[in-house]
Write a protein that binds this DNA or RNA. Structure first.
Lengths: 98, 98
DNA sequence: CTGAAATGTAGTCGTTCGACTACTTTAGGA
DNA sequence: TCCTAAAGTAGTCGAACGACTACATTTCAG
């Protein structure tokens, strides 16, 4: 989903938190922030610190993606487990045993 | 590209800014922030305010996407101009004139 | 190589942050 | 309905923010 404003962050954090069935208190501990801060961020606080927001998204297993002119689709080293053809690997192994 | 830390934001903002050939000063005006702030954010300042970061991304025409368990792919009203088959529309119009 | 533009650094100042504690209000299961 | 946990509100306090001005450093076209 698109994130355009701090309110969007708040909605998404709340939604994800509820989907996981955890309380603000628990999320606060997991993200290493105060519970009060979670309350404010879920309400869309525009001046919250990015670092903490990212920590919180990470604690919820949410991932952020950025795109636009001049932005590479992936960083090198990103998506490290991409499209491995397991059959091919096994076949190769079979042909050159230890 | 994935954004995991404030440094990632900094890198992307700088890259997009350069891709557009504008200076920190110009970006600062476009995003309604101080130039000094741009300097710090491009360096990965973790305590910058989310609101301003979003303003800056918008000023650069960058878009942020969030995904994960419990997050809808799109909000209703998002992606309003999706996949219109122009031919089909014209064909329909041809069959039922004003 | 030179010099102007772009970028980075330093310090001031009023404002706001976020952790914390302590209450109040809301909500939902027994 | 009641009653406990969850969620929201209030106030304090040290720390950091971000705009600003002024200066230093880097970059790169000519």
């Amino acid at each position: 989903m698109q994130v355009r404003t701090p309110v969007d962050f708040g909605l998404m954090i709340r939604q994800a938190r509820r989907a996981r069935g955890i309380t603000q208190q628990e999320l606060a501990r997991a993200a290493a922030v105060g519970r009060q801060w979670i309350v404010e961020v879920e309400a869309g606080k525009p001046r919250a610190e990015v670092g903490r927001v990212l920590q919180t998204l990470a604690a919820l297993d949410l991932s952020l993606t950025i795109h636009g002119e001049g932005i590479p689709e992936l960083r090198e080293s990103e998506d490290p487990a991409e499209d491995i053809d397991l059959d091919a690997v096994l076949e190769a192994h079979r042909r050159t045993p230890p």
